[in-house]
């Protein structure tokens, strides 16, 4: 990396501004703007066909925007002097020659990018693929292919990492490994942008989220804040009791809202669990379950994107 590529304010920052991509009969991305900060894992979320992949491909100079700009550390991808030393990417619909071995796939990239050949071995070891180094790509399992993609992205020890559904096909062990891996990279001050449909995983992994639907921005911000913005007045409490009517009456007196969940439990909102417990005690009602349900990313995501046509 030359010093020219580093400026104190924009180093590692991804800035998308007014980005639009019009395909023949669909506006895949529509005037999209957001900023991704270094040192954090950012989840890039949206229903199928929302435009995530198209956005990432425009960011990487693979697809030409109809209008708008996307920059990494203040530069368009095509203008980075040594792109692989600055940005690593794992994209869907990218693959390797079926008849080439994993290690040779990486060596070809090293040769093209002017990286030393030993980086291929190091990157392969990093993703735990060394035992399959000399096997041909066509014999790789889905998860092994995904790991090879991550190895390719890490060849240049990049400052910025961009991943499109990287957890696809990874086993539970692999997913946990990747969570630690990506968090570690962000902790080192790198930028990590990762798209995914696995929202429970994202809740564990991401610091920030960018949610888009139908090509447009829906919400951006730290995960806690985005979740908080949608849960008016806090958590929900789930209670189970044989004397539902008596409890409902007692809770209504506390200004709580009570709904049946259809499976024999009651969902209480507007009051917290201790209040529900005290109300039950006061009414002499026996409780079989009393749990606080924290709102999760999945619920918030579904609420935010509801009605915004996914597949167009």
């Amino acid at each position: 990396m030359s010093d020219g590529q580093r400026s104190p304010t924009s180093d590692g920052q991804i800035v998308v501004s007014g980005l639009t991509k019009q395909y023949r009969n669909v506006r895949a991305v529509n005037n999209l703007s957001f900023t991704i900060e270094p040192g954090r894992v950012t989840g890039f979320l949206g229903p199928n066909g929302a435009g995530k992949t198209t956005t990432l491909r425009m960011l990487l100079n693979l697809v030409t925007p109809t209008s708008g700009t996307a920059t990494i550390s203040g530069h368009r991808y095509a203008d980075l002097t040594e792109p692989l030393r600055h940005v690593g990417a794992v994209l869907e619909a990218s693959s390797a020659h079926k008849g080439r071995t994993g290690i040779n796939h990486l060596r070809v990239i090293c040769a093209a990018a002017g990286l030393p050949k030993r980086r291929a071995d190091e990157a392969l070891a990093l993703v735990g693929l060394t035992p399959a180094a000399k096997r041909k790509f066509k014999g790789y399992s889905l998860g092994m292919k995904q790991r090879l993609g991550i190895a390719a992205a890490m060849l240049g020890d990049p400052r910025v990492l961009i991943l499109d559904e990287p957890a696809n096909g990874l086993d539970p062990e692999g997913i946990r490994w990747m969570r630690g891996f990506l968090k570690g990279l962000a902790h080192e001050g790198r930028t990590v942008l990762v798209s995914s449909h696995l929202l429970s995983e994202m809740q564990l992994l991401a610091d920030d989220v960018v949610i888009i639907a139908a090509g447009q921005l829906v919400r951006q911000g730290p995960v806690e804040q985005v979740i908080g913005s949608m849960t008016h007045g806090g958590a929900r409490v789930r209670v189970r009791t044989p004397h539902a009517e008596a409890l409902v009456t007692a809770l209504k007196a506390q200004n709580a809202t009570v709904d049946a969940d259809g499976q024999g439990a009651l969902i209480v909102t507007g009051v917290d669990a201790p209040t529900v417990g005290r109300a039950a005690l006061g009414a002499g009602v026996e409780l079989h379950e009393l749990t606080t349900e924290r709102p999760d990313l999945e619920g918030v995501f579904l609420e935010l994107t509801a009605g915004k046509a996914g597949i167009r």
Binding site: A78, P83, L84, S94, S95, I109, A112, A113, A152
Partner: peptide, 13 residues
């Protein structure tokens, strides 16, 4: 073999 992505990422020019 869908390697165009990889190739053009390594060399955007």
């Amino acid at each position: 073999h869908q390697t165009a992505t990889t190739t053009f990422l390594a060399t955007p020019r």
